[in-house]
Nucleic acid binder design. Structure first.
Length: 475
RNA sequence: GGCUCGUUGGUCAAGUGGUUAAGACACGGCCCUUUCACGGCUGUAACAGGGGUUCAAAUCCCCUACGAGUCACCA
């Protein structure tokens, strides 16, 4: 059975690249009836952030990535938090020392720094300490780390995405397995846990590609079975650089805050680095589970295009069942529009195809509370065949006609305006265009003159039409 | 710098020796329409460069260029 794991370190926010990794791990497991496991990698005590775990739980929850085992729900291979597994790693590290695959190192920081300055890798200064020296140092409580001994030769591994990769072991440092605080390094904890948790497919960003040989050397040193590796290409920002907080949205939380819908985000990032066999581009999570194939993962990095995400978001808004959309948008209308006798349902209907984000809906109707300052030239429209002159004349007729209306329904208003068209031998646009401009003061509105007049009410409508008259006359 | 990986339109991408080199976003045009949006139709635009192999190369090989990753007691 396939088992994958998502192993974030609790840094306090969910990078979009990490979320995609989690998504693919989830999909690889689920598309094969496997298990998806969550493991928290908190071995760096210097980077602990409060509530960071909660953000991970919440993100996966909102994204719909349900894990089968994890810190908060348990499982047969716990604990699922690395800081709670400290003793396990030490035990395995000592086992490697026994078999000569690892060794104690007592070198201090100054010594290491000086090597580093000369661009040298670790010189194995402590590799051949005698047993007595080691015992003496340990007894004297000299701080130590445990290093992996990298043998000569070459290491080859196979990645499902990148194929076979061979690296000369001379490129590899005798890496630290156990730090001087007694906690394991990421690489070591990762190998031990993936083995103990019976992870079959190791899925991670390709920044780990070059350290993979070290992993294999560890698996070999233990005599453990090497997992299937799946390295994922990077996600870059619009400048082709790493996604960063500075340049806007780098995290899932940022995107949510900007108004992107979780399903739209998931759908979009699923397509960054993977493509389906068909041309389908809208996927629910269950559909992804069905369609996902490791073989159609891409090798080259992808640029995160907010533009396309925005489009996808607007598509998700359009697809929402109306009641759901209405419930989501209603609070925004109530908070942002002062006029209270409005038919919010109608506003919602008019909004759904016109916005990229739910919160944008009220701004479509900003002309209701206050007529904006507008340029008189808005009345001129070539295609509508309107000019400053005929707009003035026509508006006079409209004011007259609407002023005589006793009932102010959309049907009544529409009939009146249509009458103006017919009775004066005009084109629709010649009446409706100036009316809408006068009523809204905007060249684009989410509805026509009739609806706007009805929303504003009779007296406000007449006022605005008369105001337009003075503008045109003063011209 | 060493090592490793990558390179199809502005962006995401299909493509696994023979195609008019898909599709989507963005951009332009047209239609629909009392504006805008939606919807429909349509246009511009790509195999990084150079050598091979082959009857035939975006697809295979080599070199170059460019980009990226990595070389920590970070993950």
């Amino acid at each position: 059975m396939i088992r994958t794991r998502f192993a974030p370190s609790p840094t306090g926010f969910m990078h979009i690249g990490n979320l995609r990794t989690a998504l693919y791990e989830y999909l690889i497991a689920k598309s094969n009836s496997g298990k998806f496991i969550l493991r928290i990698e908190d071995t760096d005590q210097n980077r602990l952030v409060a509530d960071a775990e909660k953000i991970i739980f919440d993100t996966l929850e909102i994204a719909g990535l349900k894990y089968d085992e994890g810190p908060d729900i348990g499982g047969d291979f716990g604990p699922y938090i690395q800081s709670q597994r400290k003793d396990i790693y030490m035990k395995y590290a000592l086992q490697l020392i026994e078999s000569g695959k690892a060794y104690y190192c007592f070198c201090d920081k100054e010594r290491l720094d000086s090597l580093h300055k000369k661009n040298l890798s670790y010189d194995r200064h402590c590799k051949n300490l005698s047993t007595e020296e080691i015992q003496k140092n340990l007894a004297a409580k000299i701080p130590f780390v445990i290093r992996q001994f990298i043998p000569d030769g070459q290491t080859t591994f196979k990645d499902e995405v990148y194929g076979e990769i061979t690296v000369d072991n001379s490129q590899l440092d005798d890496q630290i397995l156990i730090k001087s605080d007694g906690l394991p390094t990421y690489n070591f904890a990762n190998v031990v846990d993936d083995h103990l948790m019976q992870i079959t497919h190791v899925v991670r960003g390709c920044e780990y590609l070059s350290s993979t040989p070290k992993y294999n050397l560890l698996y070999d040193a233990f005599g453990w079975q090497i997992p299937t590796y799946i390295h994922l290409p990077l996600i870059l920002d619009e400048n082709g650089e790493k996604l960063s907080k500075r340049r806007g949205a780098a995290s899932f939380q940022d995107l949510l805050q900007l108004g992107y819908l979780p399903q739209a985000i998931i759908n979009y990032i699923a397509l960054l680095g993977w493509s389906p066999e068909s041309n389908q581009e809208f996927f629910t999570l269950p559909e992804l589970e069905k369609e996902f194939k490791i073989s159609s993962l891409s090798k080259s990095p992808a640029i995160f295009d907010l533009n396309k995400l925005r489009w996808m978001n607007s598509e998700y808004i359009k697809k929402m069942p109306f009641d759901e959309f209405y419930a989501a948008v209603l609070p925004y209308f109530k908070n942002s529009i002062k006029k209270s006798d409005l038919d919010y349902k109608q506003l919602a209907e008019m909004s759904q195809t016109r916005i990229n984000f739910i919160y944008e809906a009220p701004s479509l109707f900003d002309f209701i509370d206050k007529l904006p300052d507008y340029d008189v030239n808005l009345f001129v429209h070539k295609k509508m065949k309107t000019t400053l002159e005929n707009s003035l004349d026509i508006l006079k007729i409209i004011i007259d006609k609407l002023g005589n209306l006793s009932s102010w329904t959309q049907d009544d208003i529409k009939k009146s305006l249509t009458d103006v068209v017919n009775e004066n031998g005009l084109k629709n646009g010649q009446v409706f265009w100036p009316a809408r401009i006068a009523l809204s003061g905007k060249d684009a509105t989410p509805c026509g003159a009739v609806e706007i007049a009805q929303m504003l009410g009779k007296s406000e409508s007449i006022n605005r039409l008369k105001f337009a008259l003075t503008k045109l006359e003063g011209n």
